[in-house]
């Protein structure tokens, strides 16, 4: 169990289950995962928010994390780039590796450069569109060989936003719509060439059309980086994700190929949630 790359820890399930589903688990095994979280426990003060979560993220795949509110999926995601450290009174146990190296021991700014994040609500800086994109490359010293204009255009193109904003690059980032702002935030994250992109319910504040654009974008981006998305929207997970993990009460109940999770889940809790019996 402990050596399987795509495993569920024995006590991850609140109920005793037969071991037959381990075959399901083997379906999401990958030779070398891009990222791996091993036995993560996480505490807000004395409250234990994550219980022994282990999960692998395959390179160039989209992994969705689903589950009811308060189940720990966002908390888990926010540990993957160590942004949770900035909250007071938090503590993490376990190991998170990126290309086999434990990110918890490394310089946090470099880790966050390599693992980008997009948040629940668009959070552009109170600067121009151009300045928003160039912020990351500038603070990370990535503009030595490339011009700022080049980086801005390339990043906006990658986020499928270039055509919509190319004539107003120096306008305030607040002058564009919410959906465009969120794609701007994706472009801003892509501007530092992250290897992994974390998205924390990126469409929860957007309308269906803006949501569809971001979903298309994610599918096209996975060729360039590994994507992890937290979502409340099960249809969204089904549309964009290669594999899906289901969280409940701070535990990872099940992680498998997305169609297995939605059509033939191994655990009763997963099935209850998928079919709308709770959550």
């Amino acid at each position: 169990m402990g050596t399987s790359p795509a495993r569920i820890t024995p006590n991850a399930s609140p109920t005793k289950m037969p071991t037959t589903h381990t075959e399901n688990q083997s379906q999401v095994q990958t030779a070398t995962p891009k990222m791996r979280a091993s036995n993560i426990n996480f505490y807000y003060g004395s409250f234990k928010a994550l219980h022994d979560v282990s999960l692998d993220f395959a390179a160039n795949k989209v992994t969705a994390l689903i589950g009811p509110s308060g189940c720990g999926k966002s908390t888990f995601l926010r540990n993957l780039n160590r942004i949770n450290e900035t909250l007071r009174d938090t503590r993490i146990e376990g190991e998170i590796t990126l290309d086999g190296e434990n990110i918890l021991d490394k310089d946090v700014t470099e880790i966050r450069r390599r693992i980008g994040m997009v948040f629940q609500r668009p959070n552009p800086f109170p600067k121009s569109i151009f300045e928003n994109i160039i912020y990351g490359p500038r603070i990370n010293g990535l503009l030595k060989n490339r011009s700022a204009a080049e980086v801005v255009e390339q990043s906006l193109r990658r986020a499928a936003l270039w055509d919509e904003v190319k004539d107003k690059l120096h306008d305030s980032a607040y002058a564009i719509s919410g959906g465009q702002q969120q794609r701007l935030c994706i472009a801003r994250a892509l501007a530092v060439d992250p290897e992994v992109l974390l998205l924390d319910e990126p469409c929860s504040a957007l309308d269906p059309i803006a949501t569809a654009k971001i979903e298309d974008l994610l599918v096209s981006l996975k060729h360039q980086c590994t994507i992890v998305i937290v979502t409340h929207n099960m249809q969204q997970a089904a549309r964009v994700a290669d594999t899906t993990g289901f969280f409940l009460l701070g535990k990872l109940i099940e992680h498998d190929k997305t169609d297995v999770i939605f059509k033939n889940p191994a655990k009763k809790e997963t099935e209850d949630y998928i079919t709308g019996r709770f959550g």
Partner: peptide
């Protein structure tokens, strides 16, 4: 969210304060 936006791009604390928080 602005603070986290800057930190998530690899800015350290002082950089975040000087270039995002204080200007905001």
């Amino acid at each position: 969210s602005l603070r986290e936006g800057a930190l998530a791009l690899g800015a350290n604390k002082w950089r975040t304060i000087a270039t995002v928080i204080v200007p905001a």
